[in-house]
Amino acid sequence: MDFPHLSCRRFQDGRWTAMEDMVAPETPVTLRWAGRPEAIHLSAYAVDLPSLALGHTLLHCCADGELPEIVSQSGFDLTLAPRPGARPTPRPWRGSLSPQTVLAAMATLLDAPGFWVETGCFHRAGLWDPAEGRFLVTVEDIPRHNCVDRLAGWSVQTGRSLTDLALCISARTTSSLMEKIVRLGTPVVCTRAAPTSLGLELARQHGITLAAYVKPTRLSVFHDPEQRIAGGPDHA
């Protein structure tokens, strides 16, 4: 999808200049869920919409014993329905992450080429496999919640359990985002940004390791009951 360049005026170095600057293309997306009279309206960077649609309906529409499937798609309008199915068998967490590994993983996620770097308007997220020492999948979108939906959709498409993976994300962990992460099922969350008090409370309630302010040389671990991130005075 092309990025529009629109006319604007820029003030820089003490003077005005007429110019064109790039704007991120945000598109209305409609999801229709079988049995629901009201459509679900999202906004998104409109690429790979099946993963976004599958992930959103998995986390918000499916009951236990159901998985979503796409019935039809017409442009940015997708119709989905539940089918019998269960999430993949949970995998146990394997070992602990060193703080150096967390810092390196976040740097790998955020320094890679892509719209996060080029526009400053996108969020980015990925699922880090501690056993393999790499990201299994990374995604970008304008709304941060969509990034988590897209990772959930990847899980539906691949049948891969997420219970042994760490979520790395560029966004702040508010309560609304943490509620979605709880449904996603990853036991470790590492964010470049800040947590909120209610986001942290949800992490505590569900036993989720939460590391925030993951910057090039530092991170802050706010909750880690299972010592999934090694080291520090709480783990002596």
Rank of each mutant, 00 (worst) to 15 (best):
V137A: 09
R9Q: 15
L162W: 04
T138D: 04
S72T: 09
E38W: 05
T79V: 14
R218S: 15
E226D: 15
Q100W: 00
C61A: 12
P225A: 09
A46G: 07
A203P: 04
A171Y: 04
P90S: 13
G35A: 04
Q12A: 13
T108M: 04
P82H: 06
P233K: 14
A39S: 10
A44N: 14
T27R: 15
W154M: 05
L80V: 08
H223C: 06
D48L: 02
E132Y: 02
V117R: 15
T163N: 03
T89W: 01
C62G: 03
A194N: 10
F222I: 04
R124F: 02
R204S: 07
A230I: 05
I208H: 12
S96W: 05
E201A: 15
T163F: 02
S96H: 11
D77H: 12
S170F: 00
A39F: 01
A104G: 14
Y45L: 05
V188M: 11
P233Q: 14
A44M: 13
R218L: 10
T27I: 14
A53P: 07
W93S: 08
L6Y: 00
L127E: 07
S43F: 14
L165Q: 13
P82V: 03
T57I: 05
L42P: 02
S51Q: 10
R94I: 12
I181H: 00
